[in-house]
Design a protein around this nucleic acid. Structure first.
Length: 266
DNA sequence: ATGGTCGCGTAGCGA
């Protein structure tokens, strides 16, 4: 293995894998990330286009459900110890978390694909569910950090961390993604020792990962940054870059999210 | 502009 060998992890909310398969195949051919964390596959495991993805050289692990949510991991390296779902709420049937160990030629990397609840409207039961889910994620993350592994928690967090992570803060004031409790919960994750990859190597304001389909948001670059990587210190020490693959959002039949790619030294 | 646009599944919800 060369001394400067690269390991790339991508997070991509595809908003239905069935509707997005041509776009996803094109992206995988062009960007060829080593690991991809998918969110909102919106299908059961049996309906996932496994063969088409495997034909591109990926191993596939899915945690799907009918019509909504659903997450998956794609990896050019073998996957082991696949875990589905988060502990802490036995009645929760929403498929929003999958984790596995990626067996690279170097040390193993533990990678999770996360689809954190949206939480809107704030006055509904959906918002406390979001906050409880964030607490459950924090509890699990604390357990994982104790392993002192190279850990990447990647996904659609549905959190706008700073005012500068959206075009118009006033427009998001009443939104669950922008609430002080939501942001505080995201900071709590970081305070465990997790590092936000984008903030570690870039940190510019007005770099977005999601643009609504409505009202010409993409054309006007009225977006929000809600797709994040949280890294253990062991992973953060190896981080080289974190960038939004904006071109994918400009294509025909695009998802409303762009992929985000983090690059590490292996 | 209390709309606008997608994807689910085929009415109306979720985002």
């Amino acid at each position: 293995m060369p001394a400067d060998a690269d390991f790339s992890v991508c997070t991509y909310n595809v908003n239905s894998i069935k509707a997005r398969l041509p776009n996803v195949v094109d992206f995988l051919r062009e960007a060829a990330p080593d690991v991809v964390c998918l969110q909102e596959i919106k299908c059961v495991d049996e309906a996932f286009p496994r063969q088409e993805i495997e034909d591109l050289g990926y191993n596939v692990a899915t945690h799907g459900q009918k019509s909504y949510n659903g997450v998956a991991l794609l990896s050019k390296f073998p996957l082991e110890d696949v875990r589905r779902g988060l502990a802490g709420e036995d009645t929760d049937e929403q498929a929003r978390y999958i984790e596995a160990v990626v067996l690279t030629p170097g040390a193993p990397w533990r990678v999770a694909s996360i689809y954190l609840p949206n939480g809107n409207p704030v006055a509904s039961e959906k918002f406390p569910y979001k906050l409880r889910w964030m607490q459950r994620l924090a509890a699990h993350a604390a357990d994982l950090l104790a392993l002192e592994e190279r850990l990447v928690l990647a996904g659609d967090y549905n959190v706008i961390p700073r005012d500068g992570d959206c075009h118009d803060p006033a427009a998001w004031q009443d939104d669950a993604l922008f609430q002080p409790q939501t942001r505080a919960s995201y900071r709590t994750l970081q305070n465990l020792g997790l590092v936000d990859a984008f903030m570690a190597v870039d940190g510019r304001e007005h770099v977005y990962t999601f643009w609504d389909y409505q009202a010409g948001a993409w054309a006007k670059d009225h977006g929000i940054r809600i797709d994040h990587f949280l890294l253990s210190p062991e992973a953060a020490d190896r981080l080289r870059a974190c960038a939004v693959a904006r071109a994918a959002r400009g294509k025909e039949k695009a998802s409303d999210h762009a992929p985000v790619i983090a690059r590490f030294a292996l």
